[in-house]
Each structure stands twice: as structure tokens, then as C-alpha cells.
Amino acid sequence: MILLTAFLLMMITGHSTSEYVHSLRCTYESKKNVSDTRIWCKRDAQNKSCCTGFAFRPGVSTLEGGKINVKDDGKSFVVSMSTLTQGEGVYWCGLLDKDKKSIVKLSEGNFYPPLNFFWSILRWIIFILLVLMFISNYIYVNRKYGNEENTNEDIMMRAKE
């Protein structure tokens, strides 16, 4: 209980920021597609065959002014973002096939905003409840056991007399 309380106090009272990073791994055939243009986009809600996003060359590490990060290991590229620049929905990644002049979809994922606002309010409510719990526990223990200790001391003093 004490360990949990200490952890909660450190987490609640200390400066903390919560950042949820959305990531999507896009695996490709390393030798064949190593120089192909990469695609990152959000699927249109009404027209599921259409999407809006970016086309970028291998070696690019950031998009949209640093809001989107790309890491490529030669077998796959991972697109990560902490801010959903185009809002929540289905995002996908792929490669531009130069021969067929089409886009090959590699992976897709549902991205939704995190509950940062909810946590920012909830942590203060928990902090206030924790303080109230300590105060009420202190009062309860002093009333229950504080009076018994005095009574026992009085009995011991009278017995010695």
C-alpha cells in the first residue's frame, strides 16, 4: 500500500507529460523495393479506395515539419506520429510501383487520439482523493487508538500507585 501510494504521489505531483505515439510497420522486399518511393496516407471515410497523404523517397526521416518520423532498416519502414495530422481514422503505408504505375499497400492501421485530456483531469481528482484519504485515516487512527493509549497509560499509572 505504501509503495503504491508513493508511486501515485510521484506520478501525480511531479511534472509529467503523456505522449502516445502511433506507429505502423511497412515491410517490403528489401532488394526489389529498396529504392521505391514510399507512401503514407489516410484513407478517405467516404471513398475507401482513395487516400490523402505523402509520397517520399527512401532516406527521408521526417515529414510534415517533424510531426511524422520515418525509420527504414532496409527490410521495412516504420512511420510514427504523436499527433494525428489528418485526424483519426485508417492510415496506411505502401510503395509506388514504377512499372505498373500503381500503389502497393503494405499495411494499415486504425489510429485514434489518446485520452490525454481525460488523464490530465483524472490525475488531479486522484490526488485530492489521496490527500483526503490520508487525512481521514490519520483522524480515524488517532481517535480510535489515541484514546486507548491514554486509557492504558492511566491504568498503568494507577496500578503503580
Rank of each mutant, 00 (worst) to 15 (best):
S49N: 13
N116D: 12
K100D: 10
D73Q: 09
D99E: 13
F77Q: 00
P58Q: 04
K67I: 01
D36K: 01
D99V: 03
I2T: 11
A45P: 14
K75T: 00
L95H: 11
V104I: 13
Y28Q: 09
A45V: 07
T62I: 00
D44L: 06
P113M: 05
G74W: 02
Y20I: 03
F54V: 07
G59T: 05
W119F: 05
R123L: 06
D44W: 06
K48G: 07
Y140P: 01
E29W: 09
V70Q: 01
L95R: 12
Y112M: 05
R123Y: 07
K144R: 15
L96V: 10
M81W: 00
I125T: 04
N116F: 02
T62F: 00
C41E: 08
P58I: 05
I155S: 08
K160M: 03
L122M: 08
S18H: 15
W119K: 05
N47S: 12
V60A: 07
T83A: 11
S76P: 03
R25P: 03
V79A: 02
S18M: 12
E19K: 10
L129F: 11
S107N: 15
A6K: 10
N150P: 04
L129G: 11
F54S: 04
M1V: 13
L24A: 10
R25T: 06
K160T: 00
S30D: 12
M81Q: 06
C50H: 15
G74I: 11
K48Q: 09
G94H: 15
W119A: 02
F7W: 06
Y112F: 07
D72L: 04
N147S: 13
V104P: 11
M81T: 04
K101P: 12
E148T: 08
K144S: 12
K31H: 10
